[in-house]
Nucleic acid binder design. Sequence first.
DNA 1: ATACAATATTTGTAGATACAAATGTATTGT
DNA 2: ACAATACATTTGTATCTACAAATATTGTAT
Lengths: 154, 154
Amino acid sequence: MKIEEAIKSIHTLAISTKTVVNMMYTSRIMEEAIVAVLKQYGLSTPQYNVLRILRGQHGNAANLSTLQERMIDKNSNTTRLVDKLIDKGWVKRNVCERNRRKIEIFITDDGLKILKQLDPIVEQNNEHILKNLSKNELEELNKLLDKLRTFKSE
Amino acid sequence: MKIEEAIKSIHTLAISTKTVVNMMYTSRIMEEAIVAVLKQYGLSTPQYNVLRILRGQHGNAANLSTLQERMIDKNSNTTRLVDKLIDKGWVKRNVCERNRRKIEIFITDDGLKILKQLDPIVEQNNEHILKNLSKNELEELNKLLDKLRTFKSE
DNA sequence: ATACAATATTTGTAGATACAAATGTATTGT
DNA sequence: ACAATACATTTGTATCTACAAATATTGTAT
């Protein structure tokens, strides 16, 4: 279905408007599918995102600012987000001794365990979401998104 | 910048994971740019979206359910969203006489006025966001997004 | 050493979102 | 007509987000 039908627009939209709407609309639908999966494990998408970043540290600590920098959703309140993950026992936090303004955040064994359990489920879901695009089309989509995104740096 | 650099991932991601992350990341950046513009006019993106839908009705009423169906962000609380727009005088609401369960929502002259003022600003912003893609690339991106989105209906 | 600025995180709070339950109205079957 | 069900919207509430202000620590200039 073309985006004009999806949002039931009776007008022909300018190509830029159409593309912006299409991006917002499509990513929203993708996110809904992801939220539905993570929800069963008591995780929000930003929380899952943080766990993935912490696993990627391979035992090294991450600071709050590092997390914020790498998160998809930069504006979440990272302190309280980490609090939630600590409550669940998936993350731990120390004050950094070298610079007591900073904190050191680690993923726990339980955190690694839940991620390991989620890995195939999330990956399967991603493949389901993208099943209508071929490998080449996926490469092409990534190329276009990477190119699009550079508007920010100019 | 490729998505792996953007989120500073040291791993090579599976193409499906990479694409999902890229979509979320890119649409978030686009939305931030849009929010920044609308904010100056006291509008959130869902509110702006509702005003656009109402203008598209050309004088015909829209019900709440119609709005919900056409909104990008289906899950907003549409009643309270419309309340906000009524407070600002950009929208009005009646109970439908034929079926008193339904309500009829219209855009006001002031609502049309603010949209008219915003049109060139929003369009310029959209063009800025997409300036790195050619017309052909935009068409290609829309084609890929439309194709991607059909996963839902299966 | 002291004051001032810079850095890193936390806290407060207004507003938005998600979801379930409640309300009011219309339709259908008996 | 009456009860049961379906429909359309509203309301309650817990949670999340955005943003500004506050706190705590460190670095720098005099």
